[in-house]
Every structure is written in structure tokens, then in C-alpha cells.
Simulated scan of single mutants.
Amino acid sequence: MQETVILVDEADNAVGSCEKLAAHLDGGQLHRAFSVFVFDAAGRLLLQQRAREKYHFGELWTNTCCSHPRPGETTLAAAQRRLTEELGFTVPLTEKGSFLYRAHDPISGLTEHELDHVFVGHFESAPTPNPAEVMDWRWQAIPEIEAELTAHPERFTPWFPLALNQFKNYSSG
């Protein structure tokens, strides 16, 4: 199935749509995206390692899940859909803000240019990841993640440290 993303301006107004892969070519077109951060009661973040077969940034560690809403789909509904598709569970999610970024993947040649909406939720069990989406997962405390990001930034997606820095204080909210 061909995926379509919502093209936006910097104020997050929809200005059109585009096939997902095409939106990531030639420096990337600005499009709407989301990142989900799920915490447990101890404040640990659920990280996933992206499947090797992902179209870009495969095998890198990142936040709980991330993707793009489809035209006609709310960003919240898309976040909950992808949480279920990638990790096999759903929880109530709260939007905590958004940020704009651009990141190039030298391996695939694709560029992310996204207005990324960040959602936070809480979960107290083990996920059941879809192996086509998720290679591995772990719960990890924020200070440990920050230390690993400093020592080995190449292990993580480029958007993850940006989002983590802005939204890490929402583990209790």
C-alpha cells in the first residue's frame, strides 16, 4: 500500500499531500509527523530499535514510535494507530508540543523535513513488537539515554535527541 503524507507550512497548515517516499527526496518537503514517548511508572522511556528493513534510519534506536498521519486522519489517531501497529498496544496519549527539524540519512539518501508533534503516554507491560517495524526494544532511564547519546550519537535517529531534549520532563505528566 502506498502511503501519503500531509505537506504543511511552518505553521502546520496543510498545503497538500505527497507520496511518502517522494516527500523525503531532494532535500525533503515539509510534512506533518509525530513522535510518541511512552514512559513507565519509574519514569523510564520505552525505546525501540528500528527494523533493518525500514526505508531509512534502519537499525537505529529511537523513541517509542514515530510516523506520519494520513490525509484525513488526526495526528492523535495516527499516533495511536502506529503505536498498535509497531508495538502491539495502545494507551491514552497527550500532545505536549511540536518542533521543526530536517535530517539527512546518508545511507538511503533520504531527508526528513518534518513538523513533528510529540505525544506522551504511560504503559506498565512488555510490548509485542511487529518484527517488520521493530528490531528490538528496551525501557531505559533518561540519564542513561542521555549518557549513551553523548557517547554514541550514531546509534540513534537524528530526531530523537531533539525531541528528547524538549520533552523529557513529561515522564510524570
Rank of each mutant, 00 (worst) to 15 (best):
T74M: 09
E59M: 06
H56N: 09
T62Y: 01
T94G: 05
L83K: 02
G58H: 07
L76M: 09
G58T: 04
W61E: 06
P71N: 01
T74L: 06
A77D: 13
A79R: 05
L87Q: 13
K54Q: 06
T84Q: 06
G88S: 00
C65E: 15
G58Y: 04
L83Y: 00
I107E: 14
Y101L: 06
H104S: 12
A78H: 11
K96V: 07
K96F: 02
A79G: 09
T84P: 11
P106T: 10
A78S: 10
T75W: 04
K54R: 12
D105I: 12
K54S: 02
T64I: 14
L76W: 13
A78K: 10
L87V: 12
S98Y: 03
H104D: 08
E86G: 09
T64Y: 03
L76F: 05
H56V: 08
E95W: 10
S98W: 04
Q80T: 11
E85I: 04
A79F: 00
K54T: 13
R82F: 02
G72T: 14
L93R: 13
H56G: 13
I107S: 15
S108M: 15
S98C: 05
P71E: 01
F57G: 04
W61D: 04
F57K: 13
T74F: 15
Q80Y: 12
H68V: 05
E73Q: 12
E95P: 08
T84F: 02
H68I: 02
L60E: 03
V91C: 14
R102V: 15
T74S: 03
L83I: 02
S98H: 06
H68M: 06
P92L: 00
R70E: 03
G58A: 04
L100S: 05
T94R: 08
F57C: 06
S67I: 01
E85A: 05
R81Y: 12
I107M: 07
P69R: 04
D105M: 12
R102A: 09
H56W: 09
C65W: 03
A103C: 03
L87Y: 01
F99D: 13
E59D: 05
A77S: 13
A79D: 05
L76C: 06
R102K: 12
Y101Q: 09
S108A: 14
C66E: 11
H68K: 10
G97D: 11
T84S: 07
G72N: 08
R81N: 14
P92T: 00
L100R: 13
G88R: 01
L83W: 00
P71W: 01
H68T: 10
T75A: 10
W61G: 01
T74N: 07
F89T: 01
G58W: 12
T74I: 11
G88H: 00
S67M: 09
K96D: 03
E95Y: 14
A78R: 06
W61Q: 02
R102C: 10
K96Q: 08
L93Q: 15
S67E: 09
T94Y: 05
H56A: 15
K54C: 04
A77I: 04
A79Q: 05
S67F: 01
R81Q: 09
A78V: 01
K54H: 11
W61R: 12
T75Y: 11
A103K: 10
A103P: 08
T75N: 03
L83R: 08
